[in-house]
Write a protein that binds this DNA or RNA. Structure first.
Lengths: 325, 325
DNA sequence: CCGACACCTGAGCATCCGCTCACCACTGAG
DNA sequence: CTCAGTGGTGAGCGGATGCTCAGGTGTCGG
């Protein structure tokens, strides 16, 4: 199997590797046995690994592609990238992503951490799969208003509540709609003590948990009635590819300011950027561009996605680069 | 593949193993990434190895069985056991054993080491495959007399000469026959300066190189005319299974003293025992019992054999033990 | 034949790793 | 409910490992 190695060398490498890996001898002992210097044994072992005489195989659970995760993390400077295995149906896919995200969040939480919580079906899936982590006393705060038009479990309040219940923590609900008529109403609302205080709590969270929304007509923002089909179309026309907490970005990660932005009742991109760690969750076939845009906005610290999206996003980066920036 | 492991645990082990083995991260870095303590990561890695999540495979050259070598070394308390791959014909087998022995000796020699040299076709094969080792100034001394009846290359003098030439060392020949008429002649010869000095040199060697002879009618001692067919038959009747430098042993490793012993012009078993390291080489289908006996004599430090002999000898130990000793 | 270059080698050192040992949470029996 | 037993956890330490660097050796071109 190993090429470019003469038989004697191959044999020596195999012998030394055997002592090291099978018999668990120290390099010093091996050096003694083969009448070599200790560093020499170290180099031979390194060489055995490099030439494939020693083959280390990791039995990865079915569907888990760690290399893909690394490339994703590398491409966007993420601290963590979690890729959930591909699944057949949309619902199954969301379940898998939710589960992966839940496991990740459980590992990541430490005692008393405050978490700002966004909305969407992907976060709802996370909450559904969330089991008690080792950490206790975590505080989950809505980072966005709610909407009565969609399934309750996808609203931030419900998600925060579910997370708090599962982890023996506390939840802070935001009693405000996600979208209001105009900027003036929003500002008034935010001045309300019950609303403003929750926003302040969210803005100072140590961790934010957000979904990544698309700009198709079936996206959460439209389904929840925050935006009309005409409004989302206008956003698309302005280059919007996706949103985080109601703030839309274009494919290069720049926020689209006009004119809906002031009506959103949620943490802004700038507030999000000040939160030390932002965990984004996304899945679904309509999301690649949205994920690309949000990742390029540079606010995301960790990403949980399904495998098709992961591949698609990396593909987009490559084609983008090929076209020149 | 790994059993008794729940999926989440499997995934975690795979992730950690990937970081450790593929990305070559330190346990500290991994601990940081997964929010675990450093020792915990170490234990998980150990667990990953134990459960087979991490599978380390060593690509051994075809025919090399390192486990067999270990069992052989273990069974007889050898410092080294080298097993050459099995081959079809007797000549091919001897070539392979000779090559393995040569490589081994090359590694083992250090500058200026004095080596006592025996006789036989196996050692001749070693000499034929011997290339210059790193060591220089080695001294090769015949530890046994010669015989004009067999191929010259199997005599100690020739072997010592070949080894010396190939390694830029010196050879000391023993100008005496391997077998003489009776003990009196032997003693007289050993008192000759030219003979006695070489014996003394050999007896104080740091390393001895010997073949293991059988007790069949075609063994080297008979072929070389040292013993007649009748004599070897008498030795067999006394329990002899093999010889080292003309000294025969039985299956439990005891030397057969009567009556040929005093006629041998070679280092005795006791002299051999005083040499710090004795390397024995053996091959051929008639040898298993001979090897067993010689190994049990407790003089051998390192053994080079063909694979069939290695297996046969281990088999003999097992059956012996089963029958009770 | 000689000099320059590259490669390999082994010493020394900072870091990393595995082991031991208290300590703690959980469990099951009294 | 209490308490001994058990399994797991992280601190601390000594040995093991990987890295850097100076020195030496082989090789190739001049």
């Amino acid at each position: 199997m190993p090429v470019g190695l003469n038989p004697d060398e191959h044999e020596l490498l195999a012998r030394i590797a055997y002592r090291s890996y099978v018999d668990a001898r120290t390099q010093e002992q091996i050096a003694e046995e083969f009448a070599l210097s200790r560093p020499k044994v170290g180099r031979l072992l390194e060489r055995a690994r490099a030439t494939g005489v020693v083959d280390i195989h990791i039995d990865t659970p079915r569907g888990l592609d760690l290399d893909l995760e690394d490339r994703l993390a590398e491409a966007f400077g993420l601290r963590h990238a979690i890729v959930a295995p591909a699944a057949e149906g949309a619902a199954e896919q969301r379940t898998l992503v939710g589960r992966s995200a839940a496991r990740y969040l459980e590992r990541r939480l430490t005692d008393g951490v405050r978490v700002a919580v966004g909305h969407g079906r992907d976060l709802a899936a996370l909450a559904g799969a969330f089991r008690g982590p080792a950490a206790t006393g975590c505080v989950f705060v809505s980072a966005m208003g709610g909407s009565p038009l969609v399934d309750a479990p996808t609203n931030p309040n419900e998600i925060a509540r579910a997370l708090a219940d599962a982890s023996d923590g506390t939840a802070h609900s935001l009693y405000a709609p996600a979208y209001v008529a105009d900027g003036q109403v929003r500002d008034q609302l935010r001045q309300q003590d019950a609303v403003g205080r929750v926003f302040d709590l969210a803005a100072e969270a140590a961790l934010a948990l957000v979904g990544i929304g698309g700009t198709d007509d079936g996206c959460t923002m439209v389904r929840s009635g925050c935006l009309s089909a005409a409004e989302i179309a206008r956003l698309r026309a302005r280059g919007a590819v996706g949103d985080v907490l109601g703030t839309y970005v274009d494919a290069s990660g720049r926020a689209i300011t006009a004119p809906h932005l002031e009506r959103v009742m949620a943490l802004s991109l700038e507030e999000l950027r000040r939160i030390p760690a932002v965990v984004a969750v996304a899945c679904g076939p309509e999301k690649p561009l949205a994920i690309l845009g949000v990742l390029r906005a540079g606010i995301v610290d960790a990403l949980v996605v399904d495998e098709p999206n992961a591949r698609a996003v990396l593909e987009l980066v490559v084609t983008d680069r090929a076209e020149g920036s």
